[in-house]
């Protein structure tokens, strides 16, 4: 009697575990499907020729896969040029943002000084103000750049150069830079204090301690900050069109159907959609590649990144 009761309990435990895992599996597959759906649509339609579009039997997998969509997208977007421009700018900005947010985050996390909380509040404040509000002053300041009268003359025209991006990235006030400062500060706050003290006792200065002791263990957080900085710069069309020109990937992509119409001297919503999808694939492929290489930092070591402290 006793035995069967135990057995029954064990069985009901196992069956509830089983039903939980089935439930979980269904949910995860369903949500993954919703997330992957737009990517799959893009992949599928970017290889699809026009004649498969009219074919009722073709749904996801094109019958006559073609690279023509890509060829046309590359040509009309002037892809090699805009790709290199975007790549260079995004790398530069992400790197400089990483440097500035690491340095500032460390300063805010590990040293006591008056006004520290004020600076932290300022970093949060930069996140809350919509850039659209300051668009006009920013535009004018870079157009007639003289640091509010600190530089002589009528001011330099920095529009159309990388300077606005470089200067804001170096000083931690670039796109969403406040967030990266917070992430790095959060990480450094969680490091044990005696690590630093040991280095000081051994005669290392603050800078040396920072570079030799603190930075190596901050790699996961730094990878995430770099990745975010890169992705946001890569996708940004607001500041690039404001400060620079349209020779960057996001802008070229959003103008693609208009340029196609001019290039082919015709308009065809269905056909253009295929080519725009090929263009979108060209834009997200580098991000997917980067994500694939770096994703272990996301999925395995979140607990070490100090996103939450």
């Amino acid at each position: 009697m006793l035995l069967t009761k135990e057995r029954r309990q064990a069985f009901s435990y196992r069956s509830s575990q089983f039903s939980i895992s089935v439930f979980r599996f269904v949910l995860i597959v369903g949500i993954s499907y919703i997330i992957l759906f737009p990517v799959l649509t893009k992949i599928s339609s970017s290889f699809m020729p026009m004649r498969d579009l009219g074919d009722q039997t073709v749904n996801w997998i094109p019958k006559h896969p073609t690279l023509d969509n890509y060829r046309l997208a590359i040509e009309v977007m002037n892809f090699p040029k805009v790709f290199l421009n975007s790549l260079f700018l995004s790398f530069l900005v992400a790197f400089l943002q990483l440097v500035s947010s690491t340095v500032v985050g460390y300063g805010l996390a590990r040293f006591e000084f008056r006004g520290r909380n004020l600076i932290l509040a300022a970093a949060i404040f930069t996140l809350v103000v919509p850039p659209q509000m300051m668009m006009v002053p920013l535009y004018l300041n870079w157009r007639f750049f003289n640091l509010y009268g600190l530089l002589p003359n009528g001011g330099l025209n920095l529009m159309g150069s990388y300077w606005p991006f470089l200067l804001t990235a170096v000083t931690g006030t670039g796109l969403r830079n406040g967030l990266y400062i917070l992430v790095m500060r959060q990480f450094f706050s969680g490091m044990p204090k005696n690590l630093e003290e040991a280095a000081y006792v051994d005669g290392a200065g603050p800078l040396k301690t920072f570079i030799r002791i603190m930075l190596p263990s901050a790699t996961p957080s730094m990878v995430i900050v770099f990745l975010f900085g890169f992705v946001w710069q890569w996708n940004d069309s607001f500041l690039t069109t404001l400060y620079l020109d349209s020779n960057f990937l996001p802008v070229a992509l959003s103008n693609l159907s208009r340029s196609l119409a001019a290039y082919l001297e015709m308009t065809d919503v269905q056909y253009f959609s295929l080519i725009v999808n090929a263009g979108s694939m060209l834009m997200i492929a580098p991000l997917l590649l980067m994500y694939a290489v770096l994703q272990q930092y996301f999925v395995e070591s979140i607990e070490r990144t100090g996103l939450v402290g």
Binding site: S100, G107, L108, F111, A123, T171, G172, T173, F210
Partner: peptide, 15 residues
Amino acid sequence: ALTGYLFSLPFIIGF
């Protein structure tokens, strides 16, 4: 404190 200011200086200027 001085080191702290030096580390945060880029952001103070930028801000």
